[in-house]
């Protein structure tokens, strides 16, 4: 059922991008992060759509746009690491696959998180100067990052996006 719906949804767009399987609670935040409201493109937004895997999901279809700011995509990935990104070219889903051969997901930052997350340490220089933050992964498995300025380690549940 979901497959048929997705096929229909994809089929309806000639060129563009479909971001699917977004947790509904993060949908509007991701719309903000990707600055979709500022685009001139046609956009279809699905909120709390039925999903076999997730129960309910969000989905965004952006017409005639396949390139996005990498930092924005990485920021969105922190909220929705399992959301899939399908590029549609001439009604066909681009054949990009992730490293396991599955559908490509929003890209998590590889090594460093540059100006994506705020430091939770109020005495960190990044919270007191007009400057970007910089974190590196301590452990990608349990989503722990470390501020490269003050050394504070932060776990996923305490991530606050910039």
């Amino acid at each position: 059922m979901e497959q048929n719906d997705s096929t229909k949804q994809v089929a309806a767009i000639k060129n563009g991008t479909v971001i699917d399987h977004i947790p509904p609670e993060h949908l509007f935040k991701i719309i903000d992060i990707l600055e979709i409201g500022d685009m001139d493109n046609t956009v279809t937004i699905g909120y709390r759509l039925p999903s076999g895997k997730m129960g309910r999901k969000g989905m965004i279809k952006i017409f005639d746009k396949t390139e996005f700011d990498q930092t924005a995509l990485e920021k969105a990935a922190l909220l929705a690491p399992n959301a899939t990104v399908n590029k549609i070219i001439d009604y066909k889903v681009s054949l990009d696959k992730d490293e396991n051969g599955g559908k490509p997901c929003l890209p998590l930052p590889e090594k460093e998180l540059r100006n994506i997350v705020k430091c939770t340490n109020p005495r960190c220089i990044t919270n007191n100067e007009p400057m970007p933050t910089l974190f590196t992964w301590v452990d990608r498995g349990d989503w722990t990052i470390k501020c490269e300025y003050c050394g504070r380690k932060i776990k996923k549940e305490n991530f606050e996006l910039k």
């Binding site: 220089i125 990044t126 490269e148 050394g151 504070r152």
Partner: peptide, 10 residues
């Protein structure tokens, strides 16, 4: 010397 952590790196 600075009271903010990370000031010297910055």
């Amino acid at each position: 010397r600075h009271y903010l952590e990370g000031a010297a790196k910055y």
